[in-house]
Simulated assay, not measured.
Amino acid sequence: MKKFLTISSTALAAAIALAGCSAGTDSGSMPGMDHGGSSAGPTGTSAATSATLGGAEYNSADATFARMMAPHHVQAVDMSNMLLAKQDIDPRASALATKIKAAQAPEIEKMTGWLAAWNEPAAMSGMSAMTGTMSDDEMSKLDAAQGAEAAKLYLSQMVNHHEGAVEMAKTEVTEGRNADAVALAKSIVSAQESEIKEMHDLLTAL
């Protein structure tokens, strides 16, 4: 098995463990970001309504945001770890990878913690429903790349990855109910839009 697959499964297993592995709900394919009329959790709330569980008000948009953004972040951390393990990487690219890893790892724990508190299904391992995620082939290419080629590939892939995260976060800002989740989404939009600009500038410089 490829190194990146091992990292991904281990990291996501830890995230799911933090979420308490859910409460016996169906673990089929991950829902998309279309929340219209979808069930949110044990109370059957929709995006238009909300539930209060454990003192935290939330709706299905909040649950979907956490369930999808957590594994999205896991892949970004995996990509950053992959780059940081390589030799002869431009220090500016390495510094950015370190910053992304440091920001997103604690956010994974935060979101899986919310899912556990809300008694919602934990984050899933499937990535196909999430905008901007890398395919296995794209991850393999990053794994194999070296030096300047690896830095450029990481940056171009991470731009796409960040754009997907920003899209999901903006949906949460518009449709979410939980104040903490909406605040995190706003923070993701601000931080990652800034990093997208930084990556474009760095790609031009390399």
Rank of each mutant, 00 (worst) to 15 (best):
M1Q: 10
L5R: 10
L5D: 14
S8G: 07
A13N: 13
T25Y: 12
M30T: 13
G36L: 08
G36R: 13
G37M: 14
A40I: 08
G41R: 04
T43W: 06
G44L: 11
T45A: 11
S50W: 01
A51L: 01
A51G: 08
T52K: 09
A66S: 07
M69T: 04
M69H: 00
A70Y: 06
A70D: 06
H72E: 08
H72D: 09
Q75N: 07
Q75H: 02
A76I: 00
D78F: 00
M79C: 05
S80Q: 05
S80T: 05
S80R: 07
L83F: 02
L84E: 08
Q87I: 07
D88G: 09
P91R: 02
A95C: 03
T98C: 02
P106V: 02
P106L: 03
P106T: 03
E109C: 00
G113S: 09
W114V: 04
A117G: 12
P121R: 05
M124W: 09
M127P: 08
T133I: 06
G147F: 12
E149W: 05
S156C: 02
Q157K: 14
V159C: 07
V159Y: 02
H162E: 08
H162C: 10
E163D: 14
M168G: 07
M168H: 02
K170R: 12
T171D: 13
E175Y: 11
G176T: 02
V182K: 14
V182E: 12
S194L: 11
E198D: 14
L202M: 14
